[in-house]
């Protein structure tokens, strides 16, 4: 088992490129050719794509730029410049080979990003954009497993189906690690700031998050809510247990939750249309 984990870690740490969905690229390209487009508008398009967001953040945070840690897409875009982002987006389109089955995961990630953003705003938390970014990237580990170890992924999905268990349990069984830990390795190797890497690493185990427990809690709750809603397809068919520590950290109550569910469901109607539009391109 140990070598499997080590082997997997090596594969992940070697990762230089990740696939992204071409619809986003087209939109971004059209926008960057338009002189009137603002960075915020472009950041909005980029934020809808987990892989492209991650690539841009990785570049902005790479030691060669020598700046402070950057954790929002718009800051990264201002830092890097529109042309760099555009070329990054274009080079990503080589990876237009993203398979059909990742559309569900993409929708799930988008949904969790939306839910985390709404929750953070509702609780008037600082750094809502960072929280939304962390939420968008929270399952980046699954994208990696699917890309780099597609055989293991199939085994995991089969185990989930056969034994009707949570995906994270199946992952631990088969690859001796899980998508959260893999996402954590990846964010470290990309020098992402802790406020992004902690929620990615611990969204299934909030208590392990020390420095950014609030952000991790938001991502955890958002993940539960989107799974409860049945929006997208994370690979899990069951809603995870709400972790008490996350609930207490955010001081949630029934009324907040009920209002939040109504807001999220309204927003998801729009997200669904956006997602269909992207798929159609």
């Amino acid at each position: 088992m140990e070598d499997k984990r080590g082997e997997l870690k090596k594969i992940i740490m070697d990762t230089k490129t990740l696939p992204t969905l071409p619809g986003v690229i087209n939109k971004l390209n059209a926008l960057s050719n338009n002189d009137k487009a603002s960075v915020q508008e472009m950041a909005k398009i980029v934020s809808s794509d987990q892989v492209l967001s991650a690539r841009i953040l990785r570049l902005a945070n790479s030691p060669s730029y020598g700046f402070y840690r950057v954790s929002t897409i718009s800051n990264a875009m201002i830092l890097l410049g529109v042309n760099v982002v555009k070329s990054l987006a274009l080079s990503s389109s080589i990876f237009a080979i993203m398979e059909k089955n990742s559309v569900g995961l993409w929708e799930h990630s988008l949904g969790v990003g939306v839910a985390a953003n709404l929750l953070a705003r509702k609780l008037e938390l600082p750094e809502c954009e960072e929280i939304a970014t962390a939420a968008l990237l929270h399952d980046i580990g699954k994208v990696l497993v699917s890309l780099k170890c597609s055989e293991a992924e199939q085994e995991v999905l089969k185990l989930v189906r056969d034994r009707q268990i949570y995906m994270i349990e199946a992952e631990r069984d088969i690859i001796d690690t899980d998508h959260a830990e893999i996402g954590g390795w990846l964010s470290k190797s990309w020098f992402l700031p802790e406020k992004l890497s902690e929620p990615i690493s611990f969204h299934h185990d909030v208590i392990k998050s020390d420095n950014h427990r609030i952000k991790t809690s938001v991502v955890h709750i958002a993940d539960v809510l989107i799974k409860a809603s049945g929006f997208g397809n994370s690979g899990d068919s069951f809603v995870p247990v709400i972790q008490k520590v996350a609930w207490d950290t955010l001081k949630l109550n029934e009324q907040i939750l009920a209002e939040l569910v109504a807001e999220i469901e309204d927003k998801l109607v729009e997200v669904k249309n956006f997602s269909l539009e992207m798929m159609g391109e």
Binding site: Y166, V224, L225, K227, A228, G230, S237, F238, V239, P240, V241, I242, K244, W247, E254, L257, V261
Partner: peptide, 14 residues
């Protein structure tokens, strides 16, 4: 979807 967690008070509320 809630099959595995209906017993949990917070999930049951959700």
């Amino acid at each position: 979807r809630f099959e595995k967690c209906r017993e949990e008070p917070l999930n049951s509320m959700l």
